[in-house]
Each structure stands twice: as C-alpha cells, then as structure tokens.
C-alpha cells in the first residue's frame, strides 16, 4: 500500500530526514514514533506531496510521489499537526468546501459529508462556527476533513496533541475504528499512544529510522533478559541469595518496599527460559508468602528509550517508573 524508499530531505545544511524506508500494508496502522524534531512531520509532508523530498521516493497505492502527485492527493486524507481550519466558516460549510476541492461528485459530497460528520460525532455542532469550537472538536473537524473523500490512506500528524485525557481516548477509539478500512500512518511522541492504536511501530530519531517492527517483536528484540516481578509477605535477608541459586537466574534486585513487612524483587533470567515454576516452588517451600509474581514484558516506552537515548541508565526503567510514565 505504502512503500517508502530511502527518503531524504535536507534544508540547506540541515538534514531533516536521512534514508528513511518502511512499508505499510493495506488496513494496517503504523505509528511513527520519535521525540520532537525527529523528522516525523517532514516525512508526512513528503508523503502527502506537500513538499518534495531531496532524495529517494515513495509509492502510495502504486503511485509515485514525484510522478503522480494529483492521484496521490486524491487518495490521501491528511490531518496536519495544526488542523487546517477556517474559523469563519461553520463545520458544514467547511466540510463541503473540502469535499469540493477533493474532487467529489455532487452525490458523493452529500454522502461524504454525512458520513464524516457521523464518524467523528460532529452532528450536534455541524452548524456552529469553527472558531467557536473547543480544541477537541476542532481536532475532530480536522479528522472529518481528512476522512470526507473516503481516502485509502490516512496520514495523521500528532492527532491527540493538546487534548484532554477524555478527548485523547475518544480520538484513539476513533482511529482504531477507522483501521482496516483505511491504511493509517500516525505520528506521536507519546509511547502509550503508539501501543494503544498501532500494529506496527517505526521509531525515528534525528531523521533516521532506529527500528521498524511490530510491537511484540520490537520489545523482544531489545530485551536482554526475562524479567519477573516478585512480591513476598515475609522475605528475609537470605532471600536474594536463595533466589539466585535457582538455575537460570541471572540477577535478583531488591525493589523498594511498599508495606512494613512486604518486600519485592526483580528476578532476571536467561532470555527464553521460563523459571516461574522453580521460582514459585522455592518461595513456597521457604514459606515467604507469595503475594504476586508477574512476568514483565518490556513496554514500548522502555524500547523507545533504549533505542533513542545514548544513556544506558535511563533505559533500565524500573517497573514503578514505567507505570508512572504509562499514566
């Protein structure tokens, strides 16, 4: 559906993106993940034919961005970072204008308008001036604008930025609902967002792709060990030692203690080795009182940090930090 080949863009001396390549299959949602200024918007602008690339090319639905920009523009819905709205127009006026310049026929304009209003839940405000709408509603109008000509491909640049948590959830649900029917590329610098909506993640930093993979593969790719979080009622001073004695255990790190008597540990073992059975047996036999035992899959957040930061220390995010960030 979308094939990006060695895309590069320089602004004078500054290299915005360099040798970016990835593919997206039909109906897939791809999240473009990276810190601010990584080159996400530049890549999206090139794909939407807003600006030309300085090297490389991309194919969308079989059309080349350099040779058939008009065909691509007909097949793409684009929501820029700032929704492109005319505040002086009402929602309906605006969407009819967009339907017309997207080249829809008269009957398609009417159905497209009705459908995009319905999908984005804008029915109630369709006759209000865009300038009087709240940020969340404006974002929806932006999304409705991208959807109106029922495009094969949707390109959404930071679709949830600046929204309140409830609105973020709504927009994410909306995007999930659109997947399958449309192929979607969205950019974000928030990790949980990528986890929440996409099947495939492209991590980009300083204009270069750091990793392209499905979310599961990506985490196993970076994982150096299996991690298990253990919480005990009556752990003693000898506990780490005893746990370390279990075959396959690499390291046992005591974690901060929450209650007066409770203690928790992070047990790391060789990759691909399941030590849970042995672990539970040891705990029960020693009478420490097993409260909780859960395997930790590295969240995308940690993957992202590991891949995009040089500091190794930051990558070793503790489970507590992780849950904090995920909220």
């Amino acid at each position: 559906m979308i094939a990006v080949k060695h895309l590069g863009k320089r602004y004078g001396e500054v290299i915005a993106i360099d040798d970016v390549s990835f593919t997206v299959d039909k109906g897939e949602v791809l999240a473009f993940l990276g810190p601010n200024g990584a080159g996400k918007t530049t890549t999206m602008r090139i794909l939407t034919c807003f600006m030309p690339a300085t090297s490389g090319t991309a194919l969308i639905s079989g059309y080349d961005i350099f040779e058939d920009p008009m065909e691509i523009k007909r097949r793409i819905g684009y929501l820029p970072e700032t929704p492109p709205l005319y505040p002086e127009m009402t929602v309906t006026e605006y969407l009819s204008f967009v339907a017309k310049i997207k080249g829809l026929s008269k009957s398609d304009q009417t159905t497209g308008l009705a459908l995009s209003l319905e999908k984005t839940g804008l029915g109630d405000v369709s006759n209000r001036l865009i300038g009087n709408l709240s940020k969340g509603y404006r974002q929806r109008v932006g999304l409705a604008q991208a959807l109106i000509h029922n495009p094969d491909v949707l390109i959404l640049d930071e679709p949830t930025v600046g929204l309140d948590p409830r609105q973020i959830i709504e927009i994410r649900e909306l995007i999930k609902g659109l997947a399958g029917e449309h192929t979607i590329i969205l950019s974000t610098h928030i990790l949980p967002e990528a986890t929440a909506v996409s099947q495939k993640v492209v991590i980009i930093n300083r204009g270069r792709i750091v990793a392209v993979d499905s979310q599961e593969q990506l985490s196993s790719h970076v994982r150096k060990s299996e991690k298990i979080a253990l919480r005990l009622r009556r752990g003693g001073a000898e506990t780490p030692q005893k746990l370390n004695a279990i075959e396959g255990v690499l390291r046992v790190t005591p974690q901060s203690v929450s209650g007066d008597s409770e203690s928790s540990y992070l047990v790391e073992s060789n990759l691909g080795e399941d030590i849970r059975e042995q672990l539970s047996k040891t705990v029960v036999e020693s009478g420490w009182g097993l409260l909780e035992m859960k395997p930790l899959v590295l969240s995308l957040e940690e993957v992202f940090l590991q891949l995009t930061t040089e500091e190794q220390g930051v990558a070793e995010a503790t489970p507590e930090n992780k849950t904090q960030l995920a909220q």
């Binding site: 602008r45 939407t48 034919c49 007909r74 684009y78 492109p84 709205l85 005319y86 967009v98 310049i101």
Partner: peptide
C-alpha cells in the same frame, strides 16, 4: 498562518 495552505496544497488542485 492558519495552516490551511497545508489543506490546499495536499488537495488535488
């Protein structure tokens, strides 16, 4: 200023 040029320039016109 309103970024609506991004809409115009990415439409088939």
């Amino acid at each position: 200023k309103e970024h609506t040029n991004e809409l115009l320039m990415t439409s088939p016109i």
